[in-house]
Design a protein around this nucleic acid. Structure first.
Lengths: 225, 225
DNA sequence: CTGTGATCTTAACCATTTCTTAACCGTTTG
DNA sequence: CAAACGGTTAAGAAATGGTTAAGATCACAG
């Protein structure tokens, strides 16, 4: 799986650089923003796994941006947080807060806590996925079709998992490419085409059916019966 | 729609009864629990829309139960909450807190806030547009007219989406051209004409109606009935 | 460290869908 | 009326999807 994407939102270049180095070294994928308005712009394109948010920002303050980040864990990083505003922040949707100057290890630990929370939540919800005759055991990492075990490569497994987690939704090609290619900077569609083709073939061999449907120009989805 | 289900978790019968009457009168569906362990049991069967949680509970304390309620808004109701434990509670996943003795109106307001938050969140990722008999499911990438699925090309879909997102507004031809042809440097109007024509035809086939209205020299809009 | 097999990526090919363009005609505007 | 615009149709151009095969890359055992 690709590294988690973390946004660093701080207009202080020095602190931002420091954070970026720290997080990059830890294997996270980093994206910088320097104003509240920039965050909102970014947000319309993609969504991060976590946000480090300074409160004193040009454009829009951190407090203003916070509500827009609903559903994404936000760790507030700021110099002056008294206990009352801590309460306000947390009520406003922040997942945690750290005061400047912060300790690197502590910050990393708090980030890890957030990701562990998310993982726990995801794991809670599902250890196995089912779509018609396909069963996917996420713990055993095993896929069965009509009772037959089907051997998939890591990429094929990832594609099928994404599709089966959202069985009614169309999954964009770009989303699939994002999740699938770890380090490849710009993985080409030709690759995705082949993976999907191979995946289909394997599923077909055990079932005779074609479970994956192409949506022209957009992506793929599980075929509704 | 059935009323939202709220669990009242408090071993104090008097307060519990008070809450139950208050909430029932407000139209909520109420379920009582008197211990931490009882909450966990209930949880394995169904999930509420919101939980009112007392901290001093037999069996398991509220703090212990809280993490199990991930994903469900919890309002903590307790007598003694100092500022530090407020922070701890919120970090532990509580959505809000109220101290005993509480004001009925205030409690109802805070409950309403939680539900509004959820609604806002749902609306944000909301995924479907409706115009008269046309329904557009943005996740499934599917358009239905009078219950019939209508198959649109990417461009037709984009045009209809833009029009349905602003059902009262006139959408300029240049705006439509911009959004439609991302890479084409200067897409011509003749192309747009054809796309609109094809889109109309497809919608007409399932409904007999013409939903798209031309505004001379400007652009297009959804036809008001 | 090296070889081997599995896996991934890329490129080429073809079939199909979709887009663009141009032509034609009726309607609106000035 | 003439010019511009809107609507429809048809045909060629372009883009996309599916498949296959070959080289590149990775993982791992020896």
């Amino acid at each position: 799986m690709a590294g988690k994407q973390i946004w660093i939102v701080d207009d202080d270049i020095y602190i931002g650089d420091l954070l970026e180095e720290l997080l990059t070294r830890e294997g996270y994928q980093v994206c910088r923003a320097y104003s509240g308005t920039e965050v909102l712009l970014l947000l319309s394109n993609t969504k991060p796994d976590l946000v480090l948010l300074d409160l004193m920002l040009p454009g829009r303050s951190g407090e203003e941006v916070l509500p827009k980040l609903v559903g994404i864990p936000v760790i507030v990083i700021s110099a002056k947080i008294d206990t009352d505003s801590k309460v306000d922040l947390l009520l406003g949707g922040a997942a945690d807060y750290v005061t400047k100057p912060f300790d690197s290890k502590e910050l990393l630990a708090r980030i890890a806590v957030q990701f562990r929370k998310i993982e726990a939540r995801e794991k809670e919800n599902s250890t196995s996925l089912v779509f018609e005759e396909i069963t996917m055991d996420l713990e055993k990492h095993q896929v069965m079709v009509y009772g037959d075990s089907v051997k998939l490569t890591r990429t094929e497994y990832a594609i099928l998992k994404l599709l089966m987690q959202n069985p009614t939704q169309v999954i964009t090609k770009s989303v699939l490419l994002d999740r699938i290619s770890e380090d490849t900077p710009d993985c080409l569609e030709s690759s995705l085409k082949v993976h999907v083709s191979n995946l289909r073939k394997k599923l077909r061999e055990s079932s005779g059916k074609d479970y994956i449907e192409a949506v022209w120009g957009i992506g793929f989805k599980m075929a509704n019966a």
